[in-house]
Amino acid sequence: MNRDNSVLIVEDELITANSISGLLEEEGFFVVGVVDDSSEAFLFFDGDKEFPKTVLCDINIKGELNGIELAKQLKSKYGCEIIFLTAYADNKTLYDAFGAEPVMYIVKPFTDKQLLSALHMATYRIMKALDDDNGKIEIILTKREREIIELVMQGFTSRQIAAQLFISPQTVKTHRRSMLQRNNMHSFSQLVYQLHK
């Protein structure tokens, strides 16, 4: 299966990494792995396996390369989209990080919303880069489903959406599943991409 929404998390604070991993999986992203070392990150780009498409990268990591160098290599060799996630906010680090052309540079501590909207942006770019078909697929959605899509794109979690629409988180998930099935989409990102193409 083609995973446009696959994410590799490179973060040396494993509690942070695992909480992000849980959040992303709950929001429908496919987390291929969590590593805290630059050399371990390259293991995911070996052999016949599908490469992760987005790399969520801390700057201060273990191993030979720092996060910025790692991100530059992954971007140029494998075309990954980069999101930096770091507590550094000084100008020098920022300028260095620009070299990797990241989708977003998020300063810790971050909110779920900042993280999710950055990931939606990255996946949108990936879908656009892979898309060689100009044909538009017609998407059928209810009014409620459109509301939910808007909120998801803004970076809200299913739970936050549920609270805002006064429905249960379970119902939000049901809506999300059913719109994918009806339109024959394999991921939420694909649905959003086709909708806005």
Partner: peptide, 24 residues
């Protein structure tokens, strides 16, 4: 000073992540 700021922010992130991890 930068390192201390960095540490403070990182630690606050860990605290926030701990709570998220548990709430999941």
């Amino acid at each position: 000073i930068m390192e201390i700021h960095h540490r403070v922010k990182n630690n606050l992130q860990v605290i926030s992540s701990l709570m998220l991890l548990q709430s999941q």
